Simulated assay, not measured.
Amino acid sequence: MCTYITAKLDAAGSAKGADGWFTLSETTVYFDHPVHAAAEHTLNIDFRNPERGAGARVAVELTAQTARALAHAILETLDAVPEDLI
Rank of each mutant, 00 (worst) to 15 (best):
V60Q: 11
T63C: 06
T28K: 13
T42N: 07
E26G: 01
L75V: 10
P82D: 07
A64T: 09
P82Y: 01
T23R: 04
T66M: 06
E76W: 06
E83M: 05
E40R: 15
S25T: 15
R48E: 14
A11G: 00
H36T: 14
A54D: 15
V29K: 09
I74G: 00
M1P: 05
V81R: 04
V35E: 15
H72K: 13
H41F: 12
P34D: 03
D32Y: 09
L43W: 02
F31C: 13
A73N: 01
H33S: 14
W21M: 11
L75I: 07
A80P: 02
K16D: 12
P50S: 09
T77H: 05
A54C: 10
T6N: 07
F22R: 02
M1I: 03
K16W: 03
L75A: 08
H33P: 07
E61F: 12
G55E: 05
G55S: 03
A38F: 00
A69I: 03
E40H: 14
E51R: 10
Y4K: 12
P82T: 05
A59L: 02
H72T: 15
C2P: 15
F22Y: 08
D79R: 03
I74H: 03
K8F: 09
D79I: 00
R52L: 15
A12M: 07
A15D: 06
A11T: 07
C2S: 12
A18S: 15
G55N: 01
A64P: 01
A56K: 00
A12R: 08
A37P: 02
P82I: 05
V60D: 05
T27P: 04
N44R: 07
G53E: 03
Y4L: 02
E61T: 05
D32C: 06
A7Y: 09
D46V: 11
C2H: 11
A54H: 10
Q65H: 14
E61H: 06
A7I: 03
T23Q: 12
A18Y: 04
T27R: 07
K16S: 10
G55M: 00
F31E: 13
H33T: 15
A54P: 07
A67I: 03
V58C: 11
A15G: 15
A71P: 05
L43E: 05
L24T: 00
T42Q: 06
L78M: 10
A12T: 10
N44Q: 12
R52N: 10
R48Q: 14
A69K: 13
A12F: 05
N49S: 06
V29C: 08
G55V: 11
G53Q: 06
D19M: 05
A80R: 07
Q65A: 15
P50E: 11
E40Y: 13
L70H: 09
T63P: 09
I45C: 02
V58L: 13
H72C: 13
D32T: 10
R68D: 01
T63F: 04
E51Y: 09
F31I: 12
E76D: 15
R57P: 03
S25P: 08
T23L: 08
D84R: 07
P50I: 04
T66R: 14
A67K: 08
T3L: 10
D32F: 05
V58W: 07
D32I: 02
V58I: 13
